[in-house]
Design a binder for these strands. Sequence first.
DNA 1: CGATTTATGTCAGCGATGTTGACATAAATC
DNA 2: GATTTATGTCAACATCGCTGACATAAATCG
Lengths: 174, 174
Amino acid sequence: MPAPTAPLTLASEDEATAPPTDAMLREGAELMFFGYRSFTRDPDQILAERDYGRAHHRALHFIGRQPGISVAGLLDILGVTKQSLARVLKPLVDHGLVEQRVGTNDRRKRLLFLTDEGRAFEERLSDPQRARLLRAFREAGPEAVDGFRLVMTAIMDADERKQANAYMDGAKAR
Amino acid sequence: MPAPTAPLTLASEDEATAPPTDAMLREGAELMFFGYRSFTRDPDQILAERDYGRAHHRALHFIGRQPGISVAGLLDILGVTKQSLARVLKPLVDHGLVEQRVGTNDRRKRLLFLTDEGRAFEERLSDPQRARLLRAFREAGPEAVDGFRLVMTAIMDADERKQANAYMDGAKAR
DNA sequence: CGATTTATGTCAGCGATGTTGACATAAATC
DNA sequence: GATTTATGTCAACATCGCTGACATAAATCG
């Protein structure tokens, strides 16, 4: 422990910022639950029409965001096993939504791309989700959006944060 | 539509607030994915020790938050079918984590309570999650937390928002 | 060049979580 | 007394994770 030079009355950094109460933390947990459920509701409904699920949407999203990603790269982002991904990826390839091309540098790699049909379906899934975010961002205002971003990032562990940031920056740079 | 007195250059409400770009919306979607995954990682690991899953945690959380809730009330919050809930609730009752008491006013109702053991297990699950939120809230600061709350609430549809608010307020009033 | 490692695919089985449909029981209500 | 409500339960099914094991082709190492 460092030398306890701080006074007993709380004065954490600059002004005396009240620490989050237990009730605020519980509310935060519930906001995560309710918010995430709302966020996934639209695409879930569309996916249910066919024999696809949330995992198919995720694969389509990340392939669309980073065309030419390898299978290993996608595994890394999604954080699932090869066998889990295969069950999702195979139907997408079979149904002509995702195309696999052999890598030029390394011919063991299968680089993943969306077909036109895949792109169209991905957009159909993401459009209501983006519309929801757009409405929410407008409604809440830019400062709130900054706060949202800060908190969501801070929720992640250092390594997860690094991965997420690296990924999102990489996609931004394209 | 109201009379279009506004100039063509964008000046939406007070100051010219730039609308969220498509990249910001995509980033938002990814923050939801990565953030939620991080948020559920700790309890998921603890749950995996026994034969429980995320659904058991949710049931324990909401029963703990609203002791004496009826089965129908819990179904409403969780938004799952009776059969789905039964598969989660039965083991919790069998293992002595949840207690069912016959309602006094309406004896058809089974009111749900956590046992001491149930409360202890729920806390074991929620503690790392709350610690994560506490760290995130401290790190991001109070204004960011307000923004986070605003955005997460705005992501919900009106009816979902109403349900979530009614629920969270009700629990607060206890 | 031969051995090893890497990238990917695949088979088999299991567990958790959701679904629909159907039926049963007890208690409240009309 | 008939109907509705609250709950429980059985059966079947799909998605989405997991582990373990094995196969193949291409790259790399010694």
